[in-house]
Design a binder for these strands. Structure first.
Length: 400
DNA sequence: TCTGGGGTCCTAGGACCC
DNA sequence: TCTGGGGTCCTAGGACCC
């Protein structure tokens, strides 16, 4: 039976949500009505455009470019910083509203959902439901969404990306040729800045060109990715709406440093702050890590990383810090570093991890210490009590 | 005051084993 | 004498997404 899939995408999510929040908190100006952007912190060298108003878009401002470039295009663009907590709050409101329609909802990101409506339609059509959802989101939550309708996730997602804002589009199999094959290949999901030029060199310029290309040749050149891009171009996607909770496979944090750092001691201090945060998040998920990965970005944007297995899977701050320090020290050759990252990988649920025979007294002590500190963080805020905080480096790093 | 941060998945090559 | 082949695990790097 043909599935009934809906993809919902919040228009200019970060900017719209921040606009509503401001209005609710007594601000007069609706930043959706002026040239405005949500951007990162320029003083911390994180000054990129994260979202833009429709008016800012008319000036040619695009997501991902620097705020510096955005200002050149529109000198009086207003820049706001936004807040992830606010985004989360509105994302949750949307999710709750959608639960009125189906519980088969995949939260693909903070501002995108897939809905499997196959078993929830009764007499009404998918289009009826989409219209109702759009209306209710407008009236009850105060923002707009684009909705894509089709028989699989890929096509629904492509559809929601058509004309914006506040629009509903269909992209059923019989519409692929007319609505999708005419688009340039860069519009196809999963084709990014590295692959598009390669396809151009093969004289594949539209999604239609790709759909009609020789699949064997694509697999030859791109491996598994070649098969997927050919299938997507032909509107083939058998994946299910992943509505069940899934445990994270990795948890990491990274930070762009306010200034390049060129000595190991200082890098180690930043690493401690990262370790503390990553381990804290692991414990909140009740997960333990088998592998630790440390990454560096040099001042000229060269990325490299080292990873290593832990002797015992853990979520202890100290153990994670010591492992990451070992990795950092083995890889660092004195470059000027712009960004440092720490990622806990190959995670398993703590309850699934075998009760370690090697669990030493010291580890139990660490676990207890971490637990105490976590409780204080819950009570008084994350930054109230950090090991790294003592070193005064928190101001270099931003945590939620 | 030029370029975020959090993720997932894939691949190539080396080590090691039989 | 002149160099297998399959399988698995591990690591570094990279592509892509929002």
């Amino acid at each position: 039976m043909e599935r009934q899939i809906m993809h919902i995408d919040v228009n200019n999510a970060f900017l719209s949500w921040f606009a509503i929040w401001r209005l609710k908190n007594g601000e007069e100006i609706d930043i959706r009505e002026i040239p405005s952007i949500i951007g990162g912190d320029e003083s911390r060298r994180a000054g990129i455009v994260l979202a833009k108003s429709n008016i800012a878009k008319q000036f040619g401002i695009v997501t991902g470019e620097t705020i510096f470039q955005a200002r050149k295009k529109c000198p009086n663009v207003k820049v706001f910083q936004g807040d992830y907590k606010i985004y989360r709050e509105y994302s949750d409101k949307l999710y709750k509203l959608l639960l009125d329609y189906t519980d088969k909802i995949e939260r693909y990101s903070v501002d995108e959902c897939f809905l499997d409506m196959t078993e929830y339609l009764m007499k009404s059509t998918l289009m009826d439901k989409a219209k109702e959802i759009r209306k209710r989101v407008n009236e009850e939550l105060g923002f707009t969404v684009n909705i894509g309708l089709s028989s699989n996730k890929l096509l629904a997602k492509m559809a929601s990306d058509f004309e914006k804002p506040n629009k509903i589009h269909t992209l059923y199999t019989n519409e692929i040729e007319e609505k999708m094959w005419t688009l340039p290949i860069r519009d196809l999901f999963m084709l990014g800045r590295k692959t598009v030029p390669k396809l151009y060199n093969m004289n594949i310029k539209t999604i239609g060109d790709l759909a009609k290309a020789d699949i064997e040749q694509l697999i030859n050149k791109f491996g598994k990715h070649g098969k997927i891009m050919w299938e997507y171009a032909n509107g083939i996607d058998l994946s299910d709406v992943a509505y069940k909770y899934e445990e994270p496979k990795s948890i990491g944090n990274s930070t762009t440093l306010a200034k390049d750092i060129q000595d190991l001691e200082s890098l180690n201090e930043v690493l401690l702050a990262l370790a503390e945060h990553v381990a804290y998040r692991l414990r909140k998920y009740n997960m333990i890590a088998n592998v630790i990965n440390v990454g560096l970005r040099t001042k000229d944007f060269k990325d490299f990383s080292h990873q290593g297995k832990l002797y015992i899977p853990t979520a202890n701050t100290k153990d994670i810090y010591l492992k990451s320090k070992e990795l950092l020290n083995s890889m660092y050759k004195g470059e000027a570093i712009r960004l440092i990252s720490l990622r806990a990988d190959k995670l398993i649920n703590k309850n699934e991890g075998q009760i370690s025979l090697f669990n030493t007294k010291d580890e139990k002590k660490q676990e207890k210490l971490d637990k105490t500190l976590d409780e204080l963080k819950e009570k008084y805020g994350y930054l109230s009590i950090t090991r790294a905080g003592k070193l005064g480096i928190e101001k270099n790093i931003k945590f939620k």
